[in-house]
């Protein structure tokens, strides 16, 4: 998993643990946590595959833009790999 990642913007129904306020946002992998049962299946009693989970660090500037209270404060969240895509070069969020 490369260092810089972007959270998918998709908004599917169901039990999703990638918080909506971080979707479409780019962050840096803080650490890999190992593989955990996918909550999107687990929540419904379905056979749940084990997916890699990462702690991703976002700046307040990235999450809240100009409304950020302090641009360089951060939010760390656990995001499953299937919600992340690598970002090869610095791209500002549209």
């Amino acid at each position: 998993m490369p260092e810089r990642v972007r959270v998918s913007r998709r908004m599917p129904p169901g039990h999703v643990r990638a918080p909506a306020y971080l979707r479409g946002k780019t962050g840096v992998v803080e650490r890999a946590l190992g593989r955990f049962a996918n909550p999107e299946q687990l929540a419904y009693g379905l056979p749940a595959g084990k997916e890699p989970l990462y702690r991703v660090r976002f700046t307040m500037a990235e999450v809240w833009g100009a409304a950020a209270e302090r641009p360089d404060d951060t939010i760390d969240a656990e995001i499953f790999a299937h919600w992340l895509t690598p970002v090869t070069e610095r791209q500002d969020a549209p």
Partner: peptide, 26 residues
């Protein structure tokens, strides 16, 4: 920082705040 102030905690400007959102298994 505003929320922490309401708890009575004023942080110096040179301290970085790191929020940890417990979104999954940790």
């Amino acid at each position: 920082r505003k929320v922490l102030r309401e708890f009575g905690l004023e942080l110096p400007d040179d301290v970085t705040v790191r929020i940890h959102d417990s979104t999954a298994d940790m």
